[in-house]
Computed example of a mutant assay.
Amino acid sequence: MAMTDPILSESAAKVRLRRQGEVLRSLMTNPTTALGMIIIILLLGMAIFAPYLMPPNIPDPYQMPRDWGATRMPPGTPGHPLGTTNQGGDVLYGVVWGSRSSLQMSLIVVSVTVVIGVVIGSIAGIVGGWIDEALMRVVDIFLSIPELIFALAVAAILGPSFTNIILSLCIVFWVKYARIMRAQIILIRQSDYVQAARVMGDSRFNIFRRDILPNASTPIAVQATLDMGNIVLVGATLSFIGLSESGIAEWGVLVSEGQAGIASGRWWASTFPGLMIFLWALAFNLVGDGLRDALDPRTEGKR
Rank of each mutant, 00 (worst) to 15 (best):
L254N: 03
A216S: 15
S168W: 09
A13T: 11
D202H: 12
T225C: 07
I116P: 00
D227Q: 09
A124C: 03
R72I: 12
G129V: 13
T271P: 00
I220W: 04
V139L: 05
T163Q: 11
D289S: 05
L135W: 14
F205D: 00
A269F: 06
G94C: 08
I231S: 00
W130G: 12
D67R: 10
V232R: 01
V112F: 08
I212Q: 07
D296C: 07
Q87M: 12
S106M: 10
F284L: 08
G265Y: 10
T32M: 15
D289W: 05
L243A: 08
I180N: 01
V115D: 05
V287M: 11
A183T: 14
I165W: 08
M73D: 04
G69P: 00
S270H: 02
T29P: 00
G98W: 06
W280E: 00
L43R: 06
L8E: 12
A47Q: 01
M73K: 15
G290I: 14
L275W: 04
L169C: 03
S102A: 15
G252Q: 05
G247Q: 07
M1T: 14
L92K: 08
T163W: 11
F208A: 06
M64D: 01
L238G: 01
L24K: 14
A124H: 04
A224I: 11
L35R: 03
R19I: 11
V199W: 06
T4M: 14
W268I: 05
R25W: 14
P219Y: 02
I58N: 08
V172E: 04
M228E: 03
F150W: 12
I220N: 01
S106W: 10
A153W: 04
S203Y: 02
I231D: 00
E257W: 02
L295A: 02
W267K: 07
P31Y: 13
S11R: 15
G69Q: 13
L82D: 04
A50Y: 03
Y193W: 10
E300T: 15
L44W: 09
P59L: 11
L53W: 05
M64K: 03
G117P: 00
W280T: 12
M276F: 13
I220G: 01
S111Q: 11
I149M: 13
K14Q: 14
F205M: 09
V139P: 00
G88Q: 04
V287P: 01
G290F: 13
Y193L: 07
I41T: 14
M105T: 14
V172C: 02
L279Q: 09
I241K: 06
A236D: 11
E257T: 03
L233S: 05
R137T: 07
V234K: 03
R198K: 14
R210F: 13
G36R: 05
G36S: 04
I116K: 04
